[in-house]
């Protein structure tokens, strides 16, 4: 189609004389049904914007952005998790043919092909058709990509231990407040050290590499005994190898921690 001053119209209309099949019809041919950007159309856009903003503000006011405890690069027990929009990639890299020696395939080849195809979409899909049903390959590829992204994200969310994630990142040392004093000479504390409880729950019992805090649990002595015997979360049952009497002392001690 000729552009600029060479353009030829049909009669006195704004319909160009020769229409290139590759180029979508120009909306200026539909004179009379259009409206000016300002103020008529902008107002509609701003209405949508205002509704959207209210939603964002409500979300922001009710849900604070998460903040975990200060980074400790030596904490090897921490299981990292990316932000949700990278979850699908995180899950994808767990597949046997996308991990280990094949990591470059999962991390570069496949995302590279996906983004490369996205870049080149206009040159791969060159036909004149624009309706999604009339170009099944392009539509099908995108639907497949969306389906796999959704599936991988869902799978990742479904199979992740969110409880553990929440606990491992909890802020334990609140700035300006000193960690609670622990009586290291108490019988209960000595038992915790003897049976290696402190290696997970921390020397100060306020949580550590793999275990949550033991302070101010609000559990009775019996409830603590039950957890020690049967385990909870990542803690397997039967870790405590001492006598029943020692278990009683230990449970009393933990439930008394404030």
């Amino acid at each position: 189609m000729k552009k600029g001053k060479n353009i030829k119209y049909v009669g006195d209309s704004r319909v160009p004389q020769d229409i290139d099949k590759n180029i979508p019809t120009d909306f200026s041919q539909y004179a009379g049904k259009t409206e000016p950007f300002y103020p008529s159309f902008l107002l509609k856009e701003w209405m949508v914007g205002a509704v959207f903003l209210v939603a964002l503000l409500v979300l922001s006011a009710t849900h604070a952005a998460p903040l975990e405890r200060i980074a400790d690069p030596n904490d090897t027990a921490y299981i990292p998790l990316p932000d949700w929009y990278f979850l699908f990639l995180y899950e994808f890299l767990k597949f046997p043919y996308a991990s280990g020696p094949y990591l470059p395939i999962g991390a570069f080849v496949i995302p590279g092909i996906a983004f490369g195809a996205l870049f080149l979409a206009p040159f791969l899909d060159r036909g004149p058709e624009r309706r999604p049903l009339k170009r099944p390959i392009a539509t099908g590829m995108m639907l497949l990509a969306i389906a796999s992204i959704f599936y991988l994200t869902w799978y990742s969310v479904e199979h992740h231990d969110w409880e553990a994630t929440k606990n491992q990142g909890k802020i334990v040392d609140i700035p300006g407040e000193d960690a609670p004093e622990i009586d290291v000479n108490a019988d209960g504390y000595k038992l915790l050290v003897t049976y290696a409880c402190t290696s997970c729950h921390g020397d100060k019992l306020n949580g550590g590499a793999a275990g949550p805090t033991l302070i101010n649990l609000g559990l009775s002595s019996d409830e603590v005994t039950k957890i020690v015997k049967e385990g909870k979360g990542a803690m397997p049952p039967g870790l405590f190898k001492g006598t029943d009497e020692e278990l009683k002392t230990l449970s009393d001690y933990i439930s008394s921690l404030k």
Partner: peptide, 25 residues
Amino acid sequence: GYLLPWDMKAVMATKVGLQIAEQSP
């Protein structure tokens, strides 16, 4: 932006991200 608060998840996730970058040919 995920790294900037310098909390546990920020650093650990970035560690993984950088390890992936290291694998690039």
